[in-house]
Design a protein around this nucleic acid. Structure first.
Lengths: 144, 144
DNA sequence: GTAGTTGCAAATCATTTGCAGTAAT
DNA sequence: ATTACTGCAAATGATTTGCAACTAC
């Protein structure tokens, strides 16, 4: 069993919550799916295999995954909350197409250093950060 | 009349829209209020003086203000959309204290240049950007 | 056996929209 | 006059919640 799954079980146990089939299924699907899916997209994927899975269960489970640090909730332009698996790596940032919604993730040490410098200038201790660039991808530029 | 109000009138005229009392009232209130109010907060403020103003009118007008560049829509953690007056200056970013919520706005040409470079690398046309740093201000560091 | 969970449907909450009456051009 | 605008109420869409049946512990 992957360490992430173990981590989830431990979290549930520690909080007197139960390890249910649905929770494991949702975590599996989340881990093996592309990043930045919404609860709805996850639900639709799961539904094909487990037709009587409830919508609310997906929401509730994703909230748990966010609480225990396995997933991070993100809000890009549209209304839906999207989920991203936490890798425990460096900070990464997002470049999002306003046209088709395509998302590119990137990292950049230089940017990171400058951000640290800004925080230091104001004597702030940096804890987390959010950087999103919005624009048009090449394909959507061609279309407009 | 302020140049912003003039700019709004011009925008409306150019688009065959009408300059109504409600639109002017909402713009006035928006300009003279603290930044980052939601449509609801704006509506509540206006309502005390103009009790039969409609909720939808505030939403529709804020959308117009965003379209013509006078206001920018922002989403901080909560569900509501918040509006910020555009100063016409450079992009500015936010440094937010997780402890007391204090917000410092800053600009940084070097960061801006790097962001442009990232977009260019992926052949994206940059349209807008969001950069938020979260941490603890000196005062809140001392307290914790 | 006793919590905590699930699936469903109904409820919320922010925002949008249809419409009949009203106001700006 | 014409066309857009307003206020209201009803609609929407994402997410949440109440609840009775169910399942992990």
């Amino acid at each position: 069993m992957s360490s992430v799954k173990k981590r989830f079980r431990d979290y549930l146990t520690r909080h007197n919550l139960k390890t249910t089939r649905q929770r494991e299924l949702i975590l599996d699907e989340f881990l093996s799916s592309p990043s930045h899916l919404s609860a709805e997209e996850l639900y639709l994927r799961l539904r094909t295999e487990y037709p009587n899975l409830g919508y609310a269960t997906v929401y509730r489970t994703m909230k748990l995954l966010a609480e225990c640090g396995i997933a991070t909730e993100r809000h890009f332009g549209d209304r839906q909350t999207r989920y991203e698996a936490n890798t425990g790596e460096e900070h990464h940032y997002h470049l999002i197409c306003d046209g088709c919604g395509h998302i590119i993730e990137f990292e950049d040490g230089q940017i990171e250093a400058l951000l640290q410098a800004v925080a230091a200038t104001h004597s702030y201790t940096l804890r987390h950060q959010r950087l999103e660039l919005y624009g048009l991808c090449p394909k959507c530029q061609a279309e407009s």
